[in-house]
Design a protein around this nucleic acid. Structure first.
Lengths: 226, 226
DNA sequence: ACCTGAACACCGTTCAAGT
DNA sequence: ACCTGAACACCGTTCAAGT
């Protein structure tokens, strides 16, 4: 009654390791338990091997995390041509931020990891195309891309940090406390603006995007204004 | 010949623990070995005690690192009134960025830690005062502060990440590789702009600051332009 | 070439017990 | 109240050895 006697291993085909397989396992772990648990040791455990085995395909923990970020970036949606280029640009940036914001830990990672995967490149391509449609000269577009992406990423990271702050749920942040306790004589501007500083404001993001886009468009005209 | 027989400990006055003392030790460690070595265990070792002892004064590793960031921020210089407000604003931001840039690990920390120490508040006060001098309305100034500081921090973090990239010294980043290898048909804009994208450019920072400042000044006039 | 066990050199945080 | 030893539950990375 021996069945399949040609192999006596329990799981006859423990799949061979590969970068894709490792990334898949990492992604699974990420969705299940968050970025903090995506460690070399844990991913290796999922694949039923030791951490050392991963180093054939993955150079670093950072390498692994970058792969997760790019996978998530597949979820960035580009608004279809319903709106003008400015609207679509804002929509794209908002979608990018939404992805980062859904995963607080990811946002801060995006600040330091400098993604370079296929999905990130697609996002870059989309933004460049929109700027081109808006008449931004190529040389300016490259710098504008940086400005827009940097702002969106940083803003998402900040919001995410605020969201994930286990620090003091009631008082938004220690900054709030510091501002409210600010010495009115030494820090008159902070005292006077304390309300505005802590408002957060619903249209702040839209305001910022317009500041950036208008600024870029204005810079186009007068290139050498010093 | 017994000298000072009233105590037989080697170091008769191991100084009592205090938040200040702990921060001082952490700062020392930071300057000596970098942020990565500023761990609870190592700081405790410097103070000749165990890690558990620190938790009376320090809530977190994050708490400890935030304290280091604020201490470093004491080095931010505000240009004296030689230039106009715009020049002084740019100078202040540049000085802030220079501090972060000197310590690569610190820059990325600044993105996620949301400083709230005395030196950070002083920086905020300075920027608000300059915006006020430039005629930016209070409500706008609060948002502009955020925009400027976020950009400066993010840019410093990005530069720092690039600087500290042990990844591939010859090829700046994997992004460079990805861009150069980009499929010309699928990613036409990236291909066309690849030179500009990788240039880095010397006046990029100045260009960005002007985009931001001009954008803020323009937003003041037409508050509800949609 | 690929995979692995085992080791090296660390971490943050908690807690019961002491002073 | 403050301080501590010891433990708990982990890390990343390397390397000699195996297949």
């Amino acid at each position: 009654m021996a069945r399949q006697p040609r192999s006596r291993r329990e799981r006859p085909s423990k799949p061979a390791l590969s970068r894709e397989g490792i990334v898949e396992a990492a992604l699974h772990l990420f969705h299940q338990e968050g970025l903090a648990k995506v460690t070399m040791r844990r991913v290796a455990a999922v694949l039923d091997t030791g951490p050392a085995s991963l180093y054939v395909y993955i150079s670093d923990t950072e390498d692994l995390h970058a792969e997760i970020l790019d996978a998530l970036l597949a979820g960035v949606a580009v608004p279809s041509s319903s709106a003008d280029w400015r609207g679509r640009l804002k929509g794209t940036l908002r979608s990018y931020m939404a992805v980062l914001f859904e995963h607080p830990e990811l946002a801060r990672m995006a600040m330091s990891t400098m993604p370079s995967g296929a999905n990130y490149l697609a996002l870059v391509e989309t933004i460049l195309a929109l700027l081109n449609e808006g008449g931004v000269p190529d040389a300016d577009a490259a710098w504008a891309l940086d400005l827009l992406l940097l702002y969106a990423t940083a803003q998402a990271a900040e919001k995410a940090a605020w969201k994930a702050s286990s620090r003091s749920p009631s008082e938004f942040s220690s900054l709030t406390v510091a501002i409210e306790a600010a010495d009115a004589e030494a820090l008159p501007n902070i005292t006077r603006l304390s309300g505005d500083l802590l408002s957060g404001g619903g249209d702040r993001l839209d305001w910022a995007f317009d500041v950036l886009i208008n600024g870029v468009l204005a810079a186009r005209r007068a290139e050498t204004k010093a």
